[in-house]
């Protein structure tokens, strides 16, 4: 069994979620002209996550959201604090399962749409009949 030392929490993974944009390496002794402009690495947490306390990462299982660019195995950043609005991609609780759908709020009622013609829409009389678990804000699509 290997020894695991250090943080494994997702939001602590600065090293995992940072991208080096270092100035070009230069010969020792010469200061880099870009040095004064190097302000640290990009921290994806900072840009992708607005409210760490209410944000979770989930993984997609299935192909019903293909047309929205969300594929099987992609990770989604989900903010539970956001109010679900018409057009949002939401995680809804359907038959006890976390399910990803496009939320449509129309005068005729609420529709949970798949983004794949192979899957039918689900109609609900009102938003209050639904449990919306969270609103997806980003898809980490595997290219």
């Amino acid at each position: 069994m290997g020894v695991i030392v250090g943080p494994r929490v997702i939001d602590a993974g600065v090293s995992l979620l940072s991208v080096l944009i270092s100035p070009v390496p230069v010969a020792a002794g010469y200061p880099s002209p870009a040095q004064d402009y190097f302000d640290g690495r990009i921290d994806l947490n900072e840009h992708l996550i607005k409210d760490i306390t209410s944000t979770y990462v989930v993984r997609v299982s299935g192909d019903s959201m293909e047309r929205a660019g969300i594929s099987d195995g992609d990770e989604l950043i989900v903010n539970r604090a956001l109010e679900p609005k018409d057009g949002c991609v939401v995680i809804a609780v359907l038959d006890g399962e976390l399910t990803i759908k496009r939320l449509r709020i129309t005068p005729a009622g609420v529709v949970l749409q798949a983004e794949n013609p192979a899957y039918p829409d689900i109609r609900v009389p009102a938003l209050s009949d639904l449990v919306i678990w969270g609103v997806a804000t980003r898809c980490l699509h595997h290219v």
Binding site: R8, Y56, V58, V60, G62, L94, L98, A114, Y119
Partner: peptide, 15 residues
């Protein structure tokens, strides 16, 4: 361990 391990994230059904 849904929130602390990348390999154990909650699965959301796209079906």
């Amino acid at each position: 361990r849904y929130t602390t391990h990348w390999d154990e994230l909650p699965l959301v059904k796209a079906a």
